[in-house]
């Protein structure tokens, strides 16, 4: 039950793009076609799950631990450590995927390097270790490992839903007659604004 609340909260209520503003660059950049949007979100689910798994362990067993007989809290190193780990992880996923599953690599390959600079990945891994999870009917608490991974994968799924909807709308927009000053990014932003307005309707369900 608790996991269900976490999933709904992450996918719809706290949608990563439309209410938390993480990962806007790929949201605007790779949303011209539904098929590329789909590939990007699949790759993101994979990377965000893995990244949170690794950074959660690093946070709780490396940054906060007893070193040289002294209890240490070096969480101020969080930003540097996490970004390096994520960059290395993405490289590794790319290499492994190329070896064991070339078809999947063909499909996801081009999106993987882009993901390193996707702030949703770093954002989610910092969020789960610093913020408490709170929702209706659940006592607010720091998430454990399982919950963290589920939470950030659900965030990625939320990103997927938002970007696929958005790509569909943009494909339609291509065919319609848009005033000159609105062409390109402005109309995309306004469309995203309307989509965000729609997603606000989910507020308060958990």
């Amino acid at each position: 039950m608790e996991y269900l609340i976490i999933i709904i909260s992450a996918v719809f209520v706290n949608n990563v793009v439309l209410s938390q503003f993480l990962g806007i660059c790929p949201f605007l950049g790779v949303s011209k076609k539904v098929s590329t949007a789909f590939g990007m979100s699949l790759a993101l689910v994979l990377v965000m799950g893995l990244a949170t798994l690794v950074t959660y362990l690093i946070q709780n067993y490396v940054l906060i631990n007893t070193w040289f007989g002294e209890k240490m809290d070096i969480t101020f190193m969080q930003t540097i450590v996490f970004i390096l780990v994520i960059a290395a992880l993405v490289q590794m996923v790319e290499i492994i995927l190329k070896k064991i599953n070339p078809t999947l690599y063909q499909a996801l390959g081009i999106f993987l390097p882009l993901i390193t600079t996707n702030c949703a990945v770093l954002g989610a891994s910092i969020l789960v270790v610093t913020k408490e999870f709170s929702a209706k009917g659940v006592e607010s608490h720091m998430m454990n490992l399982g919950e963290s991974v589920v939470y950030s994968m659900s965030l990625a799924i939320g990103f997927g839903i938002a970007i696929i909807l958005f790509a569909g709308m943009r494909e339609q927009l291509e065919l319609s007659n848009v005033p000159k000053a609105l062409k390109g990014t402005p109309i995309a932003l306004i469309t995203a604004g309307l989509l965000a307005l729609a997603f606000m309707g989910f507020q308060g369900i958990v």
Partner: peptide, 22 residues
């Protein structure tokens, strides 16, 4: 002040900039 407003305001400010540049 909420999320949708951010997208809308930025979008329309860009329209204004394009118009002025034009």
């Amino acid at each position: 002040v909420l999320a949708p407003g951010a997208f809308l305001v930025l979008g329309y400010l860009m329209v204004l900039f394009n118009k002025l540049k034009d």
